[in-house]
Design a protein around this nucleic acid. Structure first.
Lengths: 120, 120
DNA sequence: ATATTATGACGCAAATTTACGACATATGTT
DNA sequence: AACATATGTCGTAAATTTGCGTCATAATAT
């Protein structure tokens, strides 16, 4: 690895990792946020509920509240969801801008690699 | 791992993991294949070259030949690329069916979570 | 003030991923 | 046959991810 992992992590600043372009790193982290069934489940859940609390989701998934909290944190870090405090609880919902970024990234990738025939 | 990784692998068997639906697991593994800059770089490279050898890609990336080989293996496992033997070397290229599956998966996800306004 | 409730943060263990060097194998060359 | 070339496999080390229990904190309720 030898990757320099700073503190902020969320949307901070993409610091000089090994040798790939920032764009690749950015795209990869968006997809990484989708690379776990629990996170996909959370996104789907949020799309149906329009908003919900950590405890809520935890009840729906085969995972502990703490673990769900971590996945929520990662989704938030990727910018795909955001949360607002509402008294004791926190309300999470999909973040239009993050979803948009994901859309752009996947469209860019797919438009480049989409092909009808195999060359080998 | 502990995953039974058979030969054909791609859409094989999805055996009993924790508690999410097979569909979520399948989608997640497709996205996981895209969750590393090196793998994205390989896909982009293949889209430009139409086909290429392991050694080739390794030359383009800041990684050893062995490591690139592992990433190629993962992409192949996800069904996104395939390779044909050509004498001493192996030729890799994008796999239309795998790309198609990815396209379907990301379209499904995006159509479900796409939203104009934030609910919190 | 004292419970109760909902969360995030911290610490830890197990499982995975990532990266590589050293080998083994197979195909062409000379 | 002896060599060089292109790959895949194995073993290993380091870094990350995943999952979860335990605490600390903050907002309500009693």
């Amino acid at each position: 690895m030898s990757r320099i992992k700073s503190s902020g992590d969320t949307l901070v600043g993409e610091e000089l990792k090994a040798g790939f372009s920032d764009r690749l790193y950015r795209q990869a982290s968006l997809f990484k946020a989708l690379a776990h069934p629990a996170r996909l489940a959370i996104l789907y859940h949020l799309s149906e509920m329009e908003s919900c609390m950590t405890g809520d989701v935890a009840g729906e998934l085969p995972l502990s509240r703490t673990t769900v909290g971590q996945h929520l944190k990662e989704l938030r870090g990727a910018g795909l969801i955001k949360g607002t405090v509402e008294g004791v609880r926190k309300n999470y919902c999909l973040s239009p801008s993050g979803i948009k970024a994901l859309k752009v990234a996947s469209e860019e990738l797919l438009s480049r690699i989409d092909t009808e025939e195999a060359y080998c």
